[in-house]
Design a protein around this nucleic acid. Structure first.
Length: 417
DNA sequence: CTAGGGTTAG
């Protein structure tokens, strides 16, 4: 019997607890404990939980679910993502539809989070149906649920629907599109490749007195660069400067489009940001660091990384991944290993491929202790499928981890009890 | 994750 089949059966047995003939073994024990946890604890636990059933369990064990709608939306989204990854769309439907029987369904934000959850699961039709169910469910309409639906259209690449929904729904249901609605619409036009219409909608906002923000401009700016319309991008940028619609994100779009990733240009823009009264963030510095890496100026790149703290920035997952990759590429495995350890402390471990290069490099340099330690750490942090892949690498490299066998023995002993 | 933009892929 395959292990996944075994899991399915175990799950089936645990839910059908009434069937008297089931003399199941250990699998039921973890599920029947009626522990109740806080939403913040659930958020923390969900982060490291990759098993969709356990994620569901954590979600349903939250005691104060509807007190804090924002956090609930987050945990709900998270649980759905885990189920979607396992392709369990029927379970997602059951899970989310059951919320429609909850008395809180008449709260628009509660219903909107269902639309968002369907959207991240790639179930656009369900998202639309939930929106259309609102009359029947007795949920009042405003731009809140409307924007959730618009986002679902964009995520599902139903661009034609975005425009249709945008032009029809507000009138029919008696509300006006707000600044966020326009933001989603503009993004949709950009994704469709029609930046001209995006700009038209921006002008429409001006005419109607809807609040414009740097987000609307940045969406268009980014799109112009993507389409290679550099001159138009510069024009829009100047308009942004004039009207005061620049922020860190807008500057980062400019930085990421510096021709050839020229180091001096990137540095210049970071300086400009400061003069504009803005504080460059980790993304800004990551671009600078990457520019150095690509020119094989690893000492300078490392300095950008080391200076992050002075600049009041925290390295993110991309920082660690990029720096470790390029350090390895130049054979500087020992420094790369130090950076890896810092990534563990920051709970931002790079991806499988990057770490593979590092472990192999350490072994090549006969740094067996470091390589072993790395694998041990990685196994604790990744889901079972990734751990399996690591075991293969471990075998190929001939790495034996002594206390692993001891652990297995201990588990066997426990099972006998 | 927080309704909407920017997250570097080697």
């Amino acid at each position: 019997m395959s292990s996944s089949l075994a899991l399915r059966q175990a799950r089936h047995l645990s839910t059908a607890a009434t069937s008297a003939t089931t003399t199941t073994t250990t699998t039921t024990t973890t599920i029947t404990t009626p522990t109740s946890i806080s939403i913040s604890k659930a958020k923390y636990k969900l982060k490291s939980e990759h098993d969709p059933d356990k994620a569901l369990e954590i979600y349903s064990s939250v005691s104060d679910h509807y007190a804090t709608s924002l956090s609930t939306g987050y945990t709900q989204n998270f649980t759905v993502k885990r189920l979607a990854k396992a392709n369990r769309f029927d379970d997602i439907e059951n899970f989310l539809e059951s919320h429609k029987k909850d008395p809180n369904i008449i709260q628009e934000h509660f219903l909107s989070s269902l639309i968002r959850s369907y959207s991240v699961a790639g179930m656009f039709d369900h998202a639309l149906k939930t929106y259309n169910d609102m009359e029947e469910l007795g949920t009042p309409r405003s731009s809140l649920s409307f924007n959730a639906l618009l986002s679902a259209c964009v995520r599902g690449k139903k661009f034609g629907d975005v425009v249709k929904v945008f032009d029809e729904m507000p009138q029919r249901n008696g509300f006006v599109p707000d600044s966020v609605s326009y933001g989603i619409l503009i993004k949709a036009y950009c994704e469709m490749g029609d930046v001209g219409l995006a700009i038209e909608r921006l002008r429409e906002m001006e005419g109607k007195g809807v609040d414009i923000s740097s987000i609307h401009y940045t969406t268009i700016l980014h799109c112009l660069y993507v389409k290679g319309m550099v001159e138009e991008a510069e024009k829009v940028w100047n308009e942004m400067l004039e009207k005061g619609y620049t922020d860190v994100g807008a500057y980062n779009v400019r930085i990421m489009n510096v021709p050839g990733g020229d180091v001096e240009c990137v540095k210049g823009l970071i300086e400009e940001m400061g003069n504009d009264g803005l504080k460059p963030d980790a993304i800004s510095y990551n671009y600078l660091m990457t520019s150095y890496c690509k020119r094989e100026m690893l000492d300078e790149a490392k300095k950008v990384y080391d200076d992050l703290e002075i600049n009041k920035c925290k390295p993110n997952a991309a920082t660690f991944r990029t720096l470790i990759f390029y350090l390895c590429k130049k054979g500087r495995y020992v420094i790369a290993h130090k950076v890896f350890k810092q990534s563990v402390e920051a709970h931002k471990i790079p991806d499988f491929d990057t770490l593979k290069i590092l472990v192999e490099g350490l072994v090549k340099k006969s740094k067996m202790k470091e390589a072993k330690g790395m694998i041990r750490t990685i196994k604790k942090k990744f889901p079972p499928t990734v751990v399996k892949a690591w075991e293969k690498i471990q075998q190929e490299l001939g790495i034996v981890i002594a206390d692993e066998d001891d652990n297995k023995k201990r588990v066997m002993e426990l099972r006998k009890m």
